[in-house]
Design a protein around this nucleic acid. Sequence first.
DNA 1: CTGTTAGCGCTTTCAA
DNA 2: TTGAAAGCGCTAACAG
Lengths: 353, 353
Amino acid sequence: MPAETTLSADDPEGRTERSRPTMREVAALAGVSLKTVSRVVNGESGVSPDLAERVRQAADRLDYRPNLTASNLRRADRKTSTIGLLLEDVSNPYSAAVHRAVEDVAGVRGVSVFAASLDEDPERERALVGALVARRVDGLIMAPASDDHSYLLNERRSGVAVVFVDRPPRFIDADAVVAADREGAATGTRHLLAHGHRRIAFLGDLRSIPTAIERATGFEGAHSEASLEPDPSLIVQGLHTSELAERAAMELLRRPDRPTALFTSQNLVTIGALRALRALDLQRTVAIVGFDDIPLADLLEPGLTVVAQDPTTIGRTAAEVLFGRLDGDRSPTATRVIPTTLIERGSGEIRPV
Amino acid sequence: MPAETTLSADDPEGRTERSRPTMREVAALAGVSLKTVSRVVNGESGVSPDLAERVRQAADRLDYRPNLTASNLRRADRKTSTIGLLLEDVSNPYSAAVHRAVEDVAGVRGVSVFAASLDEDPERERALVGALVARRVDGLIMAPASDDHSYLLNERRSGVAVVFVDRPPRFIDADAVVAADREGAATGTRHLLAHGHRRIAFLGDLRSIPTAIERATGFEGAHSEASLEPDPSLIVQGLHTSELAERAAMELLRRPDRPTALFTSQNLVTIGALRALRALDLQRTVAIVGFDDIPLADLLEPGLTVVAQDPTTIGRTAAEVLFGRLDGDRSPTATRVIPTTLIERGSGEIRPV
DNA sequence: CTGTTAGCGCTTTCAA
DNA sequence: TTGAAAGCGCTAACAG
């Protein structure tokens, strides 16, 4: 039997395209059995040094590349060394930082990461989970877009580990790693109250997003603690883009009884609000505290005071929890809450006129 | 034969973990042959409606999930509907925007994307390419860290399509999609020259990065065109972090014969330089033009003038070229150059004192 | 329209 | 220490 089967076909440069060599072909060239090649490729013990060397040379000559998907099919553990990561949008700085942290933990274990964006679309979430399960990922880390995750029970029952990030699971008992949304928002709000503000506007994201609700709750909670009540007309939600936020902030700031401070619940909302403040030249008059840190926030004038999340810790923790489960951790599921940090840079320390 | 084989094992909630049902089991439950299930699952024609319905119900009852890795093993086209995307750092805004664009093109074709970061490490590049090839990705889109890509010839010969982004291929003839680095840098430099600057500093990234060299070349070219020569002592390279850039800018700006303008060749370098300008309160005195746009650049005072790349177009184009190859496009390889845009916001229009 | 048989590339099992 | 045979879940090729 020939050691190479050559298919005719040309690549763009006119070189012959050749089908990938298999273990069988390596075995034939080395004059050993298939199983011996398998042992060498997988670094199993019990192969005589000279046979092993012959196998390695044959593999080299043929440019042999092990096929992980084939080996996984038969292997006892059934692990693909592959996980899925579903985020709101991989190009959003927060998601991207989570992504990088997950990648770093996965990388040292030789696990590859499928990353994808959900865009707050529950149907997309279902479709992508399906695509990843069809590729037999070992686990899933997700910031869900849907509000019912019970459909994941079936997947988990057949061995897929699932960890939620950024948003808690609903209708399923699962591990989660989230930011201290409510407490963080309360801290930011208290900061403004402590600086004398009594008319603070809240600019929030879609109410379908659990973190948005938590942050609104924290905003209100800080008021209650101080026996105050926020003016309902200063609470605007459903702002999912910086454009919408800019328009909403514009309207609020043009009112005769405009707020003396803004609390913005998310990075894009903060950016929109900053644009509105600048457009009306109020950036030194009206205070603002934003949830989520933003690159360059320290270079604005005044600097932007924020309640910063720690996406790197969130991502790393989520990955560690996931791999713990894959390694057999059977302890009860838990939600880990990663604290936020108030960073004072100027915009949040402006006092009301 | 039983329709379900139940393995004993408990998940964290104490539910029984059950092995995933196969087509065989679905076939047994539906009382048809394996092949009929295969046809229904793959939407092939030629199955009577009521058989198809029975199969679907059986699949539903068992929570059947097709195994793409198994089907790929036997299928004629040998395609996994999976690609690899190797970027400098998935959490860098530029890389993240490319990622998102690639995802969007891949998504409509049902292709999943493995994304990973290279961190300018050639060894990491080799290792990750190996990991992706072992998972039999159909194609690879990469912003390489290494300076010799001939090792990819073997992979391509066995059918892996390869497209370079951001940086051109070396020692291999391959498709590429890059920004107009040299021309963009020249445009930014001309802009400063046109505003009267004659002492312009160039702050550049590692000289191991091809785009960094191109941009330096563009900077020098713009000077030559005007029969000028940049002061070599104002050209600082090897700045790969914003901290290094800040320190370098600081030194330049403290010199008695300090530059009247800065050209920064990359977003992190720009941020470092901006910090230095602010620290010395020179942001309204010394002009700056940066390569790469930055979020919030318009909200700085003065606004940041930039030579903006178009990472979305770069990513989309790269994906389109890749899928074109996978669809059989055999035309000669080509390098597509995506133009840059000069965006004037104030910092680049400051005139020398 | 439906089913049977072989086999993708690999690991498992068991025998030599 | 080495290898032969079986089979992972699925599709190709061919019968009926």
